[in-house]
C-alpha cells in the first residue's frame, strides 16, 4: 500500500511539525508514504469564496500529483472534504472521481483503514479537542450533537491511546470556531467572537493544549490565544499522537 501524502499549503508553510508528525505516524503504522513535492493546494480557499470555476488548474495539478496512489492522506479534514466533494478534471475525470473515493483525513485513515489499536505515545497534559466542522459534520469523524444517533468519536478513540493524556470536557462540544476560510477576514467581527468563545470554553475547562484534526481552525484560535497572551497552546492531533514526552 502506497499513500500519497497531501499537505495543505498553509500547513506546509506554517506548521511543518504537523506535517512531519503525520508522515512519521503513517510510517510507524507500516505504510509506504510518498510526498509529491509538486503539490500546492486543493483550491478550497477559492471555491468557498464562490470562485470554484477558477480552481480548474489546481484540480488538474492535484490529479497529476495524486492519481497514482492507493490512498491519499492529509492532516486536514477541511481540505479532504473539499477534494471529496468538488474535485473534477476536464482531461482525467475518471482519475478525479477515483481520488475522491480514496482521499482520507489522517484520523479516519488511522482508525478505518490502518485500524490502529495502539500507539506508543505519551502526552501528560490536559487537552481540549476542537471538532472542526468539515471533519466532523462533513467527513463524519465524530457523532454530531444535533443528530439523534449513538455517540462515537474517531479522534477521541485515538487520543485515548495516548498515555497520560487527560481529555477535558467542553460545554459546547462541536460549536464552530469561526475560521471559515475567507470568512475569517470578510466577517472579521463574528469570526473573532466565535473564536474567542470557543477558546474560552477550553480555558474554562482548564485545557493546556487545544488540539484538532484541522490546522486552520487551530491557527485561528492560536492567533486569539496569543493576542490574549495565554499560555495555552494549539497542537495538531498528529503531533500529540506522535508525542514522546517523558
Amino acid at each position: 500500500m502506497t499513500v500519497g501524502l497531501f499537505i495543505p499549503c498553509y500547513v506546509d508553510q506554517f506548521y511543518p511539525n504537523a506535517a512531519i508528525a503525520t508522515l512519521e505516524l503513517l510510517e510507524k503504522a507500516g505504510v509506504n508514504v510518498v510526498y509529491p513535492v509538486r503539490q500546492t493546494c486543493c483550491g478550497q480557499p477559492m471555491a468557498n469564496s464562490g470562485f470554484e470555476h477558477l480552481t480548474k488548474d489546481c484540480n488538474e495539478l492535484f490529479v497529476q500529483n495524486f492519481a497514482q496512489f492507493d490512498y491519499i492522506v492529509s492532516p486536514s479534514g477541511s481540505c479532504v472534504l473539499h477534494v471529496k466533494d468538488h474535485l473534477h478534471s476536464d482531461t482525467h475525470e475518471d482519475q478525479a472521481q477515483a481520488i475522491r473515493g480514496k482521499v482520507y483525513e489522517l484520523v479516519e485513515f488511522l482508525t478505518d483503514v490502518v485500524k490502529v489499536e495502539k500507539l506508543t505515545a505519551r502526552f501528560p497534559h490536559k487537552v481540549g479537542l476542537h471538532q472542526s466542522c468539515h471533519g466532523q459534520r462533513g467527513l463524519g469523524l465524530a457523532q454530531m450533537s444535533e443528530l439523534v444517533a449513538p455517540a462515537f468519536s474517531k479522534p477521541e478513540k485515538l487520543l485515548s491511546m495516548v498515555q497520560d493524556l487527560e481529555l477535558i470536557p467542553l460545554s459546547r462540544k462541536d460549536e464552530c470556531c469561526g475560521f471559515g476560510g475567507t470568512f475569517c477576514v470578510a466577517e472579521e467581527a463574528v469570526s473573532v467572537k466565535m473564536g474567542k468563545d470557543r477558546v474560552a470554553d477550553h480555558l474554562q475547562h482548564e485545557a493546556e493544549f487545544i488540539t484538532g484534526a484541522d490546522m486552520s481552525c487551530l491557527m485561528h484560535m492560536e492567533g486569539i490565544l496569543r493576542r490574549q497572551k495565554s499560555k495555552v497552546k494549539v497542537m495538531h492531533i498528529a503531533e500529540i499522537l506522535n508525542a514522546q514526552e517523558g
Binding site: 508553510q13 506554517f14 511543518p16 473573532v192 485561528h220
Partner: peptide, 27 residues
C-alpha cells in the same frame, strides 16, 4: 482584518517541503 484581534502565525525556519527534501528521498 486578521491582525486586528489575532496574532499572525509565526513562520517557521523551513517549510515541510524543504524539510522533506533534506530528510526523505525525493520522488
Amino acid at each position: 482584518p486578521w491582525y486586528k484581534q489575532r496574532e499572525m502565525p509565526q513562520p517557521p525556519k523551513e517549510s515541510f517541503g524543504e524539510w522533506y527534501r533534506r530528510n526523505r528521498k525525493s520522488n
